[in-house]
Simulated scan of single mutants.
Amino acid sequence: MLLVTGATGPVGREVAALLAAAGPVRILARNPGRVTVRGPGVEVVAGEYADRGSLDRALKGVSGVFLVTNSPAEPDDERVAGAARAAGVGRLVKLSMMAVEEPGADDFITRRQRGNEQAIRESGVPWTFVRARTFMSNTLSWAPGIRSAGVVRALYGDSPVACVDPRDVAAVAVAALTGTGHEGRAYPVSGPEAITARDRTARLSEVLGRPLRYEELPLEQAREALFAKYPAPVAQAFVESAERQRAGAKAAVVPTVRELTGSPARTFRTWAADHADAFAADPPASG
């Protein structure tokens, strides 16, 4: 039995679906009602990382874990790793980020992820890290502006990023969970090309068959929006991450998807075509 966490997120959902297609899988979810992966071999367990009792129940009889943690303040990786060690789990595959291995990345979120990886290394549980680049699915945040006005407003529209389809990240994670020879390995995962926000806007325009306009978002306006939405250290981390991207730090393409799965990484155009409905124009107001 394999355990999947984060199954309501873009990567965990795909990991759970891939595993469920091949055999039984258990899902740990804070809100089981939000889990969309269902089937005769899927067991959904209610629980959260801070509740050791629910962790122990979820880990009982489990041979491997796919771990997604998002809180920058809670020691969730340490909690899960400790419970996994006690349960005799033989493999823990953690979703991490490529910035962890980049010396110039020292923002709050990256430092936390480095610390989380170190906690897992020290836990004694055999581990694999899947270090993903920016998800293509982050582009869904543009959907309201595209639907209503055909406009994309984003920061640093000419900065390249080798963004990756969450489905490809999931495929790498499943290969690490179910294959051999992955213990103690850290896999960087990118898409097949470095692409800018202007490029993505153009690809979406082609896929949707209608004109879209890109408008550069001023830095101060972007900062205000981020600080209004997130705690200050997290918002500042996003700003610093954007600056690193503008400097070219996120443009590197790596062959991990093909090497571990045998298939090429999906292009942004493929992702856009598969998610075109999310960007469909709003119907005109009646009246």
Rank of each mutant, 00 (worst) to 15 (best):
V4G: 12
T5L: 13
G9T: 05
R13C: 00
A17S: 15
V25G: 12
L28T: 06
A29N: 10
G41E: 08
V45T: 08
A46V: 05
A50N: 08
G53E: 15
G53F: 01
S54T: 15
F66R: 05
V68G: 00
T69P: 01
G82A: 13
A86I: 00
L92S: 08
S96F: 00
A99N: 11
D106P: 00
D106H: 14
D107L: 11
F108A: 13
I109D: 07
I120D: 10
R121C: 10
E122C: 05
S123T: 12
S123C: 10
G124M: 05
P126H: 07
F129L: 12
V130T: 06
V130S: 04
W142S: 03
I146D: 03
V151Y: 00
V152F: 02
V152A: 07
R153V: 09
A154E: 11
D158W: 03
S159M: 04
P160V: 13
V161K: 00
V164L: 12
R167K: 13
V169W: 03
A175P: 04
T180Q: 15
H182G: 14
R185G: 04
A186H: 07
I195L: 15
T196Q: 06
A197E: 11
A202N: 02
L208S: 02
G209V: 02
Y214D: 04
E216G: 10
P231G: 11
V234H: 03
A242S: 15
R246P: 02
A251I: 08
V254Q: 09
T256G: 09
L260T: 06
R266W: 01
F268P: 06
T270W: 10
W271Y: 15
H275M: 11
S286Q: 13
G287H: 09
